[in-house]
């Protein structure tokens, strides 16, 4: 149950783009066409799903205060957490290289669709941000870390897909000259972020429900599913609204 809760929380409530502004650079640069946006989004899900659990292991067995106690009692007092930035980014950079080599070897077609984006991803704030948030929110187990990685990847994917679709449409609208391109994209993203804030109340009832019967919790997740469906139509509506505003 925790997994489902964390999964939806990381997609909607703590959405990487709309709540914490992570990965904005590539989000703005690569969202001109839906097809490229899908490629980059898929690559982000893929890399986050690998690096977050990996960095969780690093954090748990190497970096945290007292994490080295498995080496022996004399190591129990070491605190290497100041090294976490450098360890995380090194893991991410090497994993991205490794994934690139493996994918190229075993699935040339996937490599062709992801290929150009993989090196870009090493410096995507969303990837490092995923690991840093995983650390600062003290996620409890390896499984939860994986769920968190996949969930936030999907959230990022949704965001870039939505903005790419809107940008394809907005080309036909009469946007004021100085706002064209970057300016209007910023403002649309702001409006979408306001829309996503409405998901904030989605899981607040969940905390009490966990202590009660299992059944109530299941109802809560069903509602989540509905909201997920409703989300797609909401994004479309938002696109309509923004075009109207612009007109």
């Amino acid at each position: 149950m925790e997994h489902v809760e964390l999964f939806f929380k990381s997609i909607f409530i703590d959405n990487m783009v709309f709540a914490t502004f992570l990965g904005m650079c590539s989000y703005l640069a690569v969202s001109k066409k839906v097809s490229t946006a899908v490629g980059l989004g898929a690559a982000v899900i893929f890399v986050l799903a690998i690096t977050v659990p990996l960095n969780w292991l690093l954090d748990q067995y190497l970096l945290q205060p007292g994490a080295l106690s498995w080496l022996g009692p004399e190591y129990a007092e070491y605190d290497l957490s100041f090294l976490s930035f450098i360890m995380f980014i090194a893991t991410i950079a090497t994993m991205v290289q490794l994934v690139e080599i493996v994918v190229e070897k075993f699935s040339p077609s996937l490599y062709n669709s992801l290929g150009i984006f993989l090196p870009l991803i090493a410096v995507n704030c969303a990837i490092l941000g995923g690991s840093l948030f995983m650390q600062s929110r003290e996620i409890a187990s390896l499984g939860l870390a994986a769920t968190y990685g996949i969930g936030s990847g999907i959230g990022w994917f949704l965001a870039i897909l939505a903005i790419a679709a809107i940008r394809e449409k907005i080309r036909y609208s009469n946007v004021p000259g100085p706002l064209r391109g970057l300016g209007i994209t910023f403002i649309i993203t702001g409006l979408m972020a306001i829309g996503f804030m409405s998901f904030g109340g989605m899981l607040t009832g969940g905390d009490e429900a966990v202590e009660e019967e299992q059944k109530t919790v299941e109802v809560v997740t069903e509602v989540d599913e509905d909201k997920k469906l409703a989300d797609v139509s909401e994004i479309e509506k938002e696109a309509d609204n923004t075009t109207k505003v612009v007109e």
Binding site: F21, F186, I187, T189, G190, L191, A193, I194
Partner: peptide
Amino acid sequence: LSPMALIVVG
């Protein structure tokens, strides 16, 4: 709120 940062930059 965070969305306003985007709009201000816009």
